[in-house]
Design a binder for these strands. Structure first.
Lengths: 191, 191
DNA sequence: CAATTTTTGGGACATTTGTCCCATTTACAG
DNA sequence: CTGTAAATGGGACAAATGTCCCAAAAATTG
């Protein structure tokens, strides 16, 4: 359920120690509930998660939030904006203490052009994300909650993070009330 | 509503005439309802739409289809599979007569590595797709049909393609019955 | 043109999900 | 430890959507 990209994490570790590259990379720490990226903001940086977990969500005009994904180690953030030269499409908020590698958007594009391994890792990151979001969208449109929920609960058990009901329902695209109801009906007590 | 990528289309036009690159690129024609890519199939090629429109959809285990997107000129197909070395995640079917540029997955990866403009165009294509799919997923989770439909109908008017009710409802992730009901309630007669 | 298939439109009813609301429990700051 | 805020669980009802089904209209085929 929490997506990671260990290949990119490893690569960033190397780059952050590399002679010519380490000066471009800094570290940043965030506490729980702090926001790394705010929707509609102009971004100067691209981030790669070193440790911790974030939620990435979009806020629509009717004030409702939709959580696109929970992302962990090695996941790339802000690359969309760096490549398209647009403002942020979603908000990124820490749900555990977080450490990220940061590099400027300009540096990011420079790395893309000059470091083949980095370029490849970013391409892979992007196609994986397309797949994942597509599959999630499809699943959530074509199955009922009753079919999706058990799988999700299964996945949740292997995570040691406490997701709030609010977060789970925003991830599923339903109201908290519906989530509660379904949990009760299926006999699930704790999350 | 129909996504296009004119930058990539232009680039492909140039590459298909370029001294060193034209031999790698072939053309393929398809009729309406023919499938260019079948879900779960292993792909040998990557395609770029030269002209025409396709629908890209996923079939879930419960036999229901979800249309991810309608794609037109310059859109890239099969790149996900070429980069991840996986089988196709969705089916691609022509909804108008179609002409595509085809190149082998190997050639595609070679172009990525050796032609910076191509690499950049693919990166842009991918981030745009992530944005688009994310926005669609979010919108469809957070708004009711009554709010989405008018916008969609608006967009439809500017297209000269006849979408079937079936396609529209699979794009919206609802049943045809619901689509009909909503069309009647909002006083829309023709599509 | 006739026969057949596909698409469309909608009635009736069941199911799912949302909204509003409030009591209880849990977490947290002073 | 205590008061306040946040999160949880669920009743009651409204609204949205799905399922099943069938008849009319349109498109396709021989």
């Amino acid at each position: 359920m929490i997506k990671t990209n260990l290949a990119l994490l490893q690569l960033m570790k190397e780059l952050s120690e590399g002679e010519h590259t380490k000066s471009a990379i800094t570290l940043r720490h965030l506490d729980v509930k702090q926001k790394l990226i705010m929707q509609d903001q102009t971004l100067q940086n691209v981030y790669i998660i070193k440790s911790g977990v974030i939620k990435c969500f979009m806020t629509e005009e009717n004030e409702k939030d939709y959580i696109l994904d929970f992302l962990g180690e090695g996941e790339l953030l802000g690359e969309i904006e760096a490549i398209r030269h647009k403002t942020a499409g979603c908000t990124v908020e820490a749900i555990t203490p977080l450490t990220v590698y940061a590099l400027t958007s300009t540096q990011f594009r420079h790395f893309l052009e000059t470091i083949p391994a980095f370029n490849m890792a970013v391409l892979e990151q992007l196609v994986n994300r397309v797949m994942r979001i597509s599959e999630k969208a499809s699943r959530h449109q074509l199955y009922t909650l009753a079919e999706i929920l058990p799988q999700l609960l299964n996945t949740l058990e292997s995570q040691q993070i406490n997701f709030t009901k609010q977060d789970l329902s925003e991830y599923l695209g339903i109201s908290v009330r519906s989530l509660n109801r379904m949990l009760k009906d299926t006999g699930h007590t704790a999350i």
